[in-house]
Design a protein around this nucleic acid. Structure first.
Length: 599
RNA sequence: GGUUCCGUAGCUCAGUUGGAUAGAGCAACAGCCUUCUAAGCUGUGGGUCGCAGGUUCGAAUCCUGCCGGAAUCACCA
């Protein structure tokens, strides 16, 4: 996204080229980039694309365009040419104007709400048979941040959560509880509800393993068959049937246990700082989609096999045939997802439907989209699978069977504890009340965790080493929070009265390179937000904010804001610091990370 | 085996609609606090951008092949 001044330059270049060569170079195609640090200038025009049309050497082209631009663009102070690169420097006046325009906006960098078309972001979507773990944390943080970023770019967003509250895996934990639970409840044992239910799921698998091994040993079955035929599994299947037939007793156990899980999840969600606008339950939606499929069949878009099963033929799309209804007329997972897509479309009429789901389901979403397209659904193209990579441990994938799963609550506790230890060692907040301290540790601990996860490109697998834990120095959340707190300290000292009264008017000649560099970085923030929204990439924001903080810390190190004797300079720096704090705060908010006043 | 994604410094990651001498952090080493918060700043060392071709004035970035890793390819969800 080009900001005004960049657009202006691009248009001027376009005009110059048209006049000189008679050829049209549309402004949109003219590439203006940030000048690299080691060269003098603010923006750089690469002139290689025009050398043929201009019929002179790259250096001459650059000089020619530079001359012409100087006459047309009043903001331009000077230019220099290195090889085929035209480096343009803007007048300090321009940067000062930018500061004055934005400095008092608390929503700096965020776009005003545009239009009514909504974006639906689905994320989290947990199973109700296990507590949340590190993988879910990545999912939740990504989803929540993407929603924030979309809002920041001016979209209306609905956050939805589709809870997987039914199915054979739920029946497993129910059955284990019914058999071995002795009426244990979160109240009776003091366990968190999701943890308690998770224990019975594990218990089921353990008992099943024993039974299956027995069948392998004594009946000579292979492992798969043994698992399927083991009495516990048969019972679980039976329980699922009873659930589907709405057996009152089964439903009541199901409701009770799910209720425990939801209470547990609520605590975890709240600590993690995520929330939803709407929660769907699979028990309400799992029968959807069948009508859609039958309609497609009537319209000749799908095929029916001799046994009565219904399929989508995707062979012309490079995929196989895909089953949508079994011979007995029952649904499969895909059928259900077709139905929920339709439901979501009917509910919100969104312009885009984003699904935050791990990359192990890439194929599934590919098929989902292609089937919807085949069915002629207009919203097929608005489906976007935000596919993210797995979180791996040093020993490889997390495996519940090997007990290497990193529990979400435990991890957060660990982060809070590290934050407490580090903060106490530094001893800067000894005057805080116990409550303030507690809040600070949460802000810092969560900041470290969230930033660690969000700074990585979503689609990449990432490594998490619980032993080394997460750093609080360098390219981290706390580093950014610290920078913010430092600025806030300055602004507090200056006081709101002075801050509000300032109309910065420094001698342009006295504005130094660090200040210009900081202004340039700030200038890039709004475009960064728009870009992050287009790419659905919190990592973009995360890396930008880090860049900004580094820039500020250099400035902070070299120059004093409040002790600057020249009051006009001091005022200018104060507003510069203020805008920086706003950008940091807004950027971190887009990541779902809080920033502390002091730390 | 088919498909998709990934491979950048010892480690974790940026940089990819093609642009200048490939950047940060961690780790190692050396400096900087009587001055707005040292969770900071500065410096040193560290790279055949998996490999080989190709396209181009120009390739970490695009194309092809190969190597390595991950995911997926169920009348499971």
């Amino acid at each position: 996204m080009l900001m005004d001044i960049e657009k202006k330059i691009a248009e001027a270049v376009s005009g110059i080229l048209l006049k000189e060569t008679g050829q049209a170079f549309p402004p949109g195609g003219i590439e203006l980039q940030k000048t690299r640090r080691e060269f003098e200038g603010d923006f750089t025009l690469v002139v290689f694309p025009f050398v043929k049309a201009l019929r002179r050497s790259p250096e001459q082209c650059a000089a020619f365009i530079g001359e012409a631009l100087s006459e047309q663009v009043e903001e331009l102070a000077s230019f220099n040419v290195i090889k085929g690169f035209l480096n343009l420097s803007l007048k300090p006046f321009f940067w000062l104007g930018f500061l004055k325009k934005e400095m008092n906006r608390s929503d700096f960098g965020l776009q005003a709400n545009s239009g009514n078309a909504r974006v639906v972001v689905e994320f989290s979507s947990p199973n109700t048979n296990k507590p949340l773990h590190l993988g879910h944390i990545r999912n939740n943080l990504l989803g929540y941040s993407v929603a924030k970023i979309l809002e920041g770019a001016g979209h209306k967003v609905m956050r939805v959560n589709l809870v997987n509250d039914r199915g054979i895996h739920i029946c497993k934990s129910m059955l284990a509880w019914m058999k071995f639970g002795n009426g244990e409840t979160p109240g009776s044992s003091g366990k968190k509800g999701d943890k308690l239910v998770g224990e019975y799921y594990v218990r089921f698998e353990a008992e099943l393993k024993v039974q299956a091994r027995d069948l392998v040993l004594h009946k000579g079955l292979d492992e798969e068959a043994a698992r399927r035929q083991a009495p516990l599994m048969v019972e679980a299947q039976e329980l699922l049937r009873k659930w589907e037939q709405k057996d009152p007793e089964t439903l009541s156990v199901w409701e009770e246990m799910n209720g425990w899980v939801y209470k547990g999840f609520d605590i975890t969600y709240q600590r993690l700082g995520v929330s939803f606008d709407k929660i769907y339950y699979e028990s309400d939606t799992y029968l959807l989609g069948k009508e859609l499929v039958l309609e497609g069949l009537r319209n000749g878009l799908l095929i029916k096999k001799e046994d009565g099963s219904v399929w989508a033929d995707l062979s012309d799309e490079g995929l196989d045939e895909k089953l949508l209804l079994r011979a007995d007329g029952t649904s499969v997972y895909m059928t259900q997802d077709l139905g929920t897509a339709q439901l979501r479309y009917d509910d919100f009429k969104p312009r885009q439907m984003v699904y935050v789901v791990g990359n192990e389901q890439n194929y599934h979403f590919d098929v989902l989209q292609k089937v919807l397209k085949k069915l002629g659904k207009p919203y097929a193209d608005s489906i976007y699978h935000l596919s993210y990579g797995m979180v791996e441990l040093p020993g490889g994938k997390m495996k519940s069977r090997e007990g290497t799963v990193v529990d979400a609550d435990d991890l957060m506790d660990k982060m809070f504890e590290t934050a407490r230890r580090t903060t106490e060692e530094l001893g800067k907040t000894n005057d805080f009340s116990a409550e303030e301290k507690e809040r600070l540790y949460h802000v810092i601990g969560l900041g470290a965790l969230k930033y660690f996860i969000l700074k990585v490109d979503p689609k990449k697998n990432m490594l998490f080493n619980p032993e080394e834990s997460i750093d609080f120095n360098g390219h981290t959340g706390p580093f950014i929070q610290y920078t913010f707190a430092r600025i806030r300290s300055i602004l507090r000292t200056a006081g709101p009265d002075r801050l509000e009264a300032i109309d910065p008017a420094p001698d342009p000649a006295q504005i130094n390179q660090k200040e210009i560099a900081l202004l340039k970085t700030l200038f890039a923030f709004p475009a960064c937000v728009v870009e992050a929204a287009e790419e659905l990439s919190p990592a973009k924001i995360a890396n930008y904010v880090y860049e900004l903080c580094k820039e500020f810390n250099q400035f902070y190190h070299d120059y004093s804001v409040l002790n600057e004797p020249d009051i006009r300079l001091s005022d200018f720096r104060l507003k510069l610091a203020q805008l920086t704090a706003t950008a940091i705060g807004n950027g971190m908010a887009l990541l779902g990370i809080d920033v502390p006043e002091r730390m």
